[in-house]
Amino acid sequence: MIELKHLSKVYTNGQTKVEAIRDINLTIEDGDIFGIIGLSGAGKSTLIRCINFLERPTEGQVIFDGVDLGTITHRELLKKRQSMSMIFQSFNLLSQRTALGNICYPLEISGVDKKEARERARELLKVVGLADKEKSYPVQLSGGQQQRIAIARALATNPKVLLCDEATSALDPNTTSSILELLKEINRSMGVTIIVITHEMKVIEQICNKVAVIDNSRIVEEGPVTEVFTAPKSQIAKQLILPTNQGVPEAEGFRCLRLVFDGTSAFEPIISGLSRSCDTNVNILGANTRNIDGVAYGQMLIQLPEDEAVTARIKEYLDQKNVKYKEEGLNVG
């Protein structure tokens, strides 16, 4: 279990002080896949580096398995880090060592003998599905493969916790998914607690059971993913979680109206209401909406009829219902 208590980190540069994180309180239970999501500059990277004391927090405590990391000696801290591994956005493999050599590194520094280290490394190469790449150097591997080697390296010392710093941000969507599945599998089969830092919603959605939203150096919201995702309270969470125009096609060849549901209109059958009250058929070209706690969010693209009078009635109806819209498609500049 990891507890963060009133964690703050202030960087001082001459006269200017920058507060990277401020009064962070979080509890991460054993076996969690805990996501921390935020925009860039929110303080995510500092936060994850404070957890393993790569950055020493200026205030507050990190309690890992009942031990306050701020009170132990440097030597003890180095020992602790072996049970709290980390993977990175840019993989950070040793370029002059083979895949096998990279995985052996943490074992070498913890004093495991060479032969034993190699055996363990080979086992781990199997776990990450790269048993045939032991002699390859990082430059010969793809991004996804490099991250798999980094994961194997991180697991070498049998850590209790794996810290992931934007681990999939440099990867394409398919590779991202496969790496996330691997992390999930590791969590399930080895019981490793995982802390994930990301700016991507889909990472949280795919693997996390709990999430905290960080904005402007503070945690603004936290809880089980299902709760936070179905009913985000903070502005930033809404911005990160709610559907945007993704999945709604661009208007093509028709005169169209893009309806925007931003939470100000009630969730009611707008389209059938519109169809009935304007006495026209409505053709929906695409939609990406979500009902969150009885409020509609998202966008919808509908085709406009040829008749100008009907179009005017449609707009009037939408105004009444407080739905925002924008005309798109043919002849719209």
Binding site: R81, Q82, M86, F88, S90, N92, S95, Y105, I109, S110
Partner: peptide
């Protein structure tokens, strides 16, 4: 690359180990 050094630190390497390894 500073990232590689940071990775070595995150694995609990001492300064001496970082220098020669």
């Amino acid at each position: 690359d500073g990232g590689v050094i940071e990775a070595a630190q995150s694995m609990g390497s001492s300064s001496w180990q970082i220098i020669y390894k």
